[in-house]
Every structure is written in C-alpha cells, then in structure tokens.
Simulated scan of single mutants.
Amino acid sequence: MSEPETAPIGLERDLFLRRLLRELAGTLEDVVGLDEASGYISVVGAAIGEQIDAEYKRALRVERLDRAQVARVLVDLKRRIQGDFFVIEEDATKIVLGNRACPFGELVAGRPSLCMMTSNVFGRIVAENLGYARVELPETIARGHSGCRVVVHLVPSEDADPQGREYFRAMDQDGGGPVAAFSRGTG
C-alpha cells in the first residue's frame, strides 16, 4: 500500500482554489440563480479590480492610465494569472479583446457567473482610468465557445448589448474628483 504523501493525487493549491471557486459559483447558480450568482461574483470582481488598478498605477508611477496603457494592463493582468488575452481591436470608442485560455482553466465550463470576474475587473480598471466602460461578453469559454471575446466600450452607445454591464467613475461629494467606479446593468 502506498503512503498518502506519495499517492498520485492531482492536488495542489491552484487547482484546489479553482475547484473551490467553481463549486461556490455552481452552488450560487443553483441556489439563487445565474443572475444573482453573477451579482455576488461581481462584488468580488469589483474589489479585486480596484486592487489591481491601484497596483498597476503604483508600479507604473502614474495617477491615471491612458487608453493604450489600459489595453496593455488588461492583457498583462490576465497573462499573469494564466489567461491568454490579446487585443483584437482598439480605438477611441472601444477595446476588443480575445482570449484563448481562461485563468480558471477547464473548470470554468458551465459556470458563466465566473465571467463576472473578467467583466468587473476590466470594467473597474477602464472606468477608473478613462471615466466609463461598458463590458460585453458575447463569447465565453464558460458558455462553450472555443475562446472569449470581450468588448469594452469606452463611450456610451444607444445600440449597446443589453446584456453588457456599464461602469462609471464616481465623483466625490464636492464633485471634485473620482472616488470609486461603480456599475449597473445585467450580465
């Protein structure tokens, strides 16, 4: 009989935490529904987005990222957590990203509420730095696509996808400056 320490068990911290998040998302989706589960995960994504934004601005020694820096930060942060995001298109009105590998790996399959992490992290960073974002996720690995397509609108649009989620930079009570980004919408 083998010893537990040498048994061929595929378990380590990263896999354990991804499994934990998958099961948590699945439980939320089953108990409260997909929309509510996405809402809960959005709250977590918002907090993480604010932390990541602050880290990049501190490391780059800037008060605010410009559009080109924002696009590079979105790709870089996903690279650092083993995603494979890339810019498909970028202009004054939008940043379109593709993705070939989800940071949650194969465990994201069937858990679309986990995509709210991407929506909120991206939305918070973009809105905090550029003032506005509307994040649409027309294709996701979680919903069975071979990759993800993320459209981040930088200006409001009448013909926006109703499933998208809007993010705004809030102003302080004196109207003098941003305090934090906030969001509205479905997704």
Rank of each mutant, 00 (worst) to 15 (best):
S157R: 15
L24G: 03
L137I: 04
T118D: 08
P138I: 02
V126M: 05
D161H: 06
G49D: 03
V126E: 03
S157I: 00
V32R: 08
L114Q: 00
V75A: 08
V150K: 00
F16C: 09
E23S: 06
V44F: 12
L74W: 00
L65H: 02
V155F: 09
V31N: 09
M1G: 14
D76I: 08
L11A: 13
E90S: 10
A160P: 01
L137W: 04
P178N: 03
F168T: 02
A59E: 13
V70T: 02
E63F: 08
I9N: 07
I81L: 05
L34F: 10
P138G: 03
G98Y: 00
V44I: 14
E106T: 13
R61K: 14
L11E: 13
P162L: 06
G187V: 10
T27K: 12
E5N: 15
A25H: 06
A68Y: 06
A92S: 13
A92V: 05
L17S: 09
Q69M: 14
S146P: 09
G10A: 13
Y40H: 15
D53Q: 08
G26N: 03
R80D: 06
N129C: 06
Q173D: 10
S146C: 01
Y56M: 02
F122Q: 00
N129R: 08
F182Y: 15
L114K: 03
G187L: 14
E36A: 15
L11W: 09
E89I: 00
G185L: 10
C148W: 04
S119M: 03
A54C: 05
E166I: 02
G10F: 07
L74H: 00
R111Q: 13
R111H: 15
L74N: 00
V108H: 03
Q82P: 01
R67K: 12
L34P: 06
E90Q: 13
F122N: 02
L17A: 08
L77V: 12
F16M: 14
Y40S: 04
D35C: 03
T118F: 08
R72F: 03
E5G: 15
P156T: 02
D76T: 09
L11Q: 14
V31D: 15
L130A: 06
R67V: 07
S113T: 01
P162H: 12
A68H: 09
F122R: 00
L60R: 11
V152C: 07
E63Y: 10
Y167L: 08
L74K: 02
Y167F: 15
V43H: 08
F182W: 15
Y56E: 00
T93E: 14
P138A: 05
G164T: 02
D30H: 11
N129H: 07
H145G: 06
R100Y: 01
M116F: 04
Y132D: 09
L34T: 01
N120I: 02
D14K: 10
G177A: 14
R100C: 00
L137A: 04
N120T: 07
T6Q: 12
F104M: 13
A71I: 04
E55P: 00
G123W: 01
A25I: 07
N120H: 14
G98A: 03
I41C: 05
I9D: 09
A133W: 02
E5H: 14
L28Q: 11
A54T: 12
S2E: 15
D66M: 12
T27W: 10
I95R: 04
I52W: 00
P103V: 05
R72N: 04
R58L: 09
V62G: 03
G110V: 11
D172S: 12
E128W: 05
G175Q: 04
G39I: 02
K57W: 00
L21S: 11
V75C: 05
